[in-house]
Computed example of a mutant assay.
Amino acid sequence: MDKIFFLFSFFSFFLVINAQNFKCKSAHIGKFQIDNGEYGITVIERNSKIQTETNTKMGYKARYDVTWIDDCHYELKNRKVIQGKILEGSTPDDVLRAEILKVINNKVFLKLSSNFSDEIMECEMVKIK
């Protein structure tokens, strides 16, 4: 009986992990937005290799290379500012890391970190296309 319970538990866990990975894949490509409150809305357009972020209120647009670590983790590197100012203290070696915590309908919940700050933050991104 214990073996049957163990196998059932293992397969249930496996199915939950695979279901989440499938949901993570739904956030790989598309057009998204994040409402940054006082800083306005940032529109994110991402294909399999490039992410472009535009914030009209701040007059800022930048492009990043996207590297997928696995289905639910990715890094943004090699920022190229297309419009606006480069943030003071930023360097070409900056790496932003994102973990997709969950996907519910068109909402993607992220945990963000970087190699230039100890701060870890969570945010909600909405898929609009």
Rank of each mutant, 00 (worst) to 15 (best):
73 H>R: 00
125 M>D: 08
97 R>G: 05
72 C>T: 00
34 I>V: 15
70 D>R: 01
85 K>H: 04
68 W>Y: 08
10 F>S: 05
104 I>L: 03
105 N>Q: 12
61 K>F: 07
49 K>N: 09
110 L>F: 05
38 E>T: 15
99 E>G: 04
3 K>S: 13
11 F>A: 06
111 K>F: 06
44 I>W: 06
84 G>D: 11
36 N>R: 05
104 I>E: 06
129 K>H: 02
95 V>C: 10
11 F>T: 12
64 Y>Q: 13
37 G>R: 09
54 T>I: 12
34 I>W: 14
70 D>E: 09
111 K>I: 03
8 F>W: 12
127 K>R: 07
80 K>L: 15
10 F>R: 00
6 F>M: 07
54 T>P: 12
53 E>T: 02
7 L>N: 14
20 Q>E: 06
23 K>R: 14
97 R>Y: 13
78 N>V: 10
113 S>I: 00
29 I>T: 12
27 A>T: 12
109 F>C: 01
64 Y>G: 14
7 L>E: 14
92 P>N: 10
20 Q>S: 06
1 M>C: 01
38 E>M: 07
10 F>L: 14
98 A>H: 06
93 D>A: 07
26 S>R: 09
127 K>C: 10
69 I>P: 03
18 N>K: 10
96 L>I: 15
109 F>L: 01
93 D>E: 12
12 S>V: 10
8 F>M: 08
121 M>K: 07
86 I>W: 04
92 P>T: 02
116 F>V: 13
129 K>N: 14
116 F>H: 07
59 G>F: 13
96 L>M: 13
64 Y>D: 15
101 L>S: 05
46 R>N: 07
17 I>L: 05
114 S>Y: 08
77 K>L: 09
93 D>W: 00
98 A>P: 06
91 T>A: 03
113 S>C: 03
62 A>Y: 08
70 D>S: 05
81 V>Y: 01
79 R>P: 15
28 H>L: 00
5 F>L: 15
60 Y>M: 07
63 R>Y: 03
95 V>S: 02
52 T>H: 01
48 S>I: 09
35 D>M: 04
122 E>A: 05
5 F>G: 05
84 G>S: 04
115 N>K: 10
66 V>S: 05
128 I>C: 11
9 S>W: 01
